[in-house]
Simulated scan of single mutants.
Amino acid sequence: MNRRRRIYEGKAKILYEGPEPGTLIQHFKDDATAFNNQKHALIEGKGVLNNRISEYMFTNLEAIGIPTHFIRRLNMREQLVRSVEIVPVEVVVRNVAAGSICKRLGLEEGTPLPRSIIEFYYKADELNDPMVTEEHITAFGWATPQEIDDMISMTQRVNDFLSGLFLGVGIRLVDFKLEFGRQYDNDMVRLIVADEISPDGCRLWDIQSQEKLDKDRFRRDLGDLIEAYQEVARRLGILVENEQGKHQGPILVRSS
C-alpha cells in the first residue's frame, strides 16, 4: 500500500494529500473530544456516522446552490474534498439558548431566542477558541468585510435549510457551527462551506422528548453517543433497519 502524505490532523479528522491537484482526502476518526481536548475518548463507529451524515448535509446544500468543499465519498470513513484555505473563524448560529450563551447571559437552557443569533469565534485551540467581533476579524486580517458578509449570508441560508430539514424528521436544530474556506481559481477566489456538518458540531434535540442527539451526550456523560448519532442518521434516511434480521441492527444505506 502506498503511504499517503498527511497534510493536517485535528481532533476528529485527518487530511491527506488528494489524488488530483486541488483535492484532499478527509478521514473521519473515532475520537470524541470536549472542552478543548481536555476530555477524550475513542468511540467505535463515530467517524463512519459523521462521514455519512456530513456527506448527506453537503450534498443537499450543493443541491440548493450553496458551495461546499465536498466532492464525493470515497469509502465509509473518507471523503474527497476541495483543498481550501480555511478562514480562522468559526461561525456559530444559535436558535435556542444552550451551551456557552447560557453561562454568558444567564439564560435558561432551552429558552427560544428572539431571532437566530450569529457569533464568531477565533480558531485557536491554545486560547480555547475565544469569541470575537467583526472588528477583531477585520482588524487582524482574518477576513475582509465582504467575506464576513458572505459568511453571514451563507450561514443564514444554511440555517434556514437545515432547520427545516431537521424539523421534518422531528428534530430541533438548537445551534451549530460552520467553517469556511477560500477556494482559489487563478485570479478568482470564493468562499465555500468546509470542514463537516454532523452531530459533533450541532446541537440536535428531539422535539417531543427534548432528548439530546448530539455530542452533548459525551460532554455531559449522558451515554449512548453512537445510538444518538444513529438515530439522527436513521431519521434522515441514511440508516435503515436491516430486514435480514433484527439482531443485525441498522445498516448504512449505500449512496450513488
Rank of each mutant, 00 (worst) to 15 (best):
C102W: 05
P88R: 06
I118T: 13
E135Q: 13
T144H: 06
M154E: 06
I171H: 05
M131F: 10
F120C: 02
E85P: 00
V169Y: 09
M151P: 02
E85W: 00
Q146M: 08
G170W: 06
S100A: 12
F140K: 14
S116P: 14
P130M: 08
E90W: 12
L162Y: 04
G141Y: 00
E179V: 02
I117W: 10
S83P: 00
G181W: 02
N128F: 07
G164S: 13
S100R: 13
E108N: 12
L167E: 14
K123Q: 09
T133A: 06
S100D: 11
I192K: 01
G110V: 09
E134N: 11
R104Y: 07
S116V: 01
G106R: 10
E109G: 03
L107Y: 13
G164F: 00
Q156R: 15
G181Y: 04
T111C: 06
Y121D: 00
V189T: 15
V169R: 10
T133G: 05
G168V: 01
L178I: 01
S116G: 13
V158T: 08
L105C: 10
A98V: 05
D129L: 10
A98C: 11
F140M: 11
P112C: 12
P114T: 05
R94G: 04
T138A: 03
V87H: 00
K123L: 04
D129A: 07
